Amino acid sequence: MPNPLCAERLPYHRLALASARHRWWRPLAGTLFIVGGWLLALILLASAADSWGTRQGYPKDHDGFVVFGPVTGTALDLLYVVLAIPLVLLAVRWIGRRPVGTASSVTGRLRGRWLGLCLLVALPVFAAVNAATLLLPADDTPAPGWAGWHVFLPALAMLLILVPLQAAAEEYVFRGWLTQAIGGFFPSPWIAVVPQAVLFAAAHGWGTPWGFADLVVFGLAAGWLTVRTGGLEAAIGLHVINNLIAFGLGAAVVDGLKTDETAADAPWQWVAVDIVAIAAYVAVVLWFAARRCHPLARTATVPAPLSTTPLPPRYVAPMQSPAPVLPSPHAAPAAPACPGRSR
């Protein structure tokens, strides 16, 4: 049982150890639960969608699958990914035996203001990236035309609802569960960050070596931000804005949402610009994190376990007066209060 008088500080990637009931097998069992539960939920949702589409008279492709159209089909693809969020939270609570909020940050919750700031930082950075890609040399493929407001607006409404959930789901799986599962075995943050970045890139398929490298860099940057800022907010902000702009541009052109291409298929010119944008986002977010008036929590304080050394028979602890707590001569001065902010 935990000792309330003793405590230790754990960074985000080590929060699997925050539970007094942590055992080495819990991260492995939780990973199997998430993968198996997601595959089962995927099959059930896909079967239900296929049955409904057949009854509604939607056409089928040469493999016998219902073709819902670009907007509905994209919505289903995003929903398949969103299914992972409740599975991760259940694995944290039921198998990890710790509060579900520890999957979000070291504070035990998703920090809304910090997430909003990260979204505001990512928006101009990735808008500039996509504008810069228009200046890259184009191939001989004719540019697609404007899809029209009657196509774009319904698609945009769907994307604004589902893309943030889809991006958050991938963050909770890779930068959340996997990072903390590996961090339960190894104290080094890089050992926890690198494997999830490679798995994240592999989950998007193999297109070009440049596209795969870009996804690895994205995963490394998001993972490092998660550890440095103590939560998923910076990674979610990066992922949400990146995907919203990419999907939004696809919805704006004719048949843009029909394409099967992902970031894994990106050419080297686009990857070079994207890596610069990722680096700029990381630098700005860390700058804001270091200069916040109220410091951003990077570790969680958790009770340390009691000593298991048995006491001698009939042992009585001597009465001792508590030692005075003296200020350290090297202690940093207290930070000034922020004007206009409640403490």
Rank of each mutant, 00 (worst) to 15 (best):
V216P: 00
V216I: 12
V217H: 04
V217S: 00
V217R: 04
F218P: 02
F218Y: 14
G219V: 01
G219Y: 07
L220Y: 07
L220S: 06
L220D: 04
A221L: 14
A221W: 05
A222C: 13
A222R: 05
A222P: 01
G223M: 07
G223N: 10
W224F: 13
W224D: 10
W224L: 14
L225V: 02
T226I: 03
V227K: 09
V227M: 02
R228A: 14
R228Y: 00
T229F: 01
T229M: 04
G230Q: 06
G230A: 02
G231I: 00
G231Y: 05
G231N: 05
L232K: 07
E233Y: 00
E233V: 01
E233D: 09
A234L: 00
A235H: 04
I236Q: 06
I236R: 06
G237T: 03
L238F: 09
L238Q: 13
H239K: 04
H239S: 07
V240P: 01
V240R: 10
V240Q: 10
V240T: 12
I241Y: 11
I241H: 11
I241W: 08
N242D: 13
N243T: 07
N243E: 10
L244Q: 08
I245E: 12
I245M: 11
A246N: 15
F247Y: 15
F247A: 13
F247D: 12
F247M: 15
F247L: 12
L249A: 14
L249P: 07
G250R: 15
G250Y: 09
G250A: 15
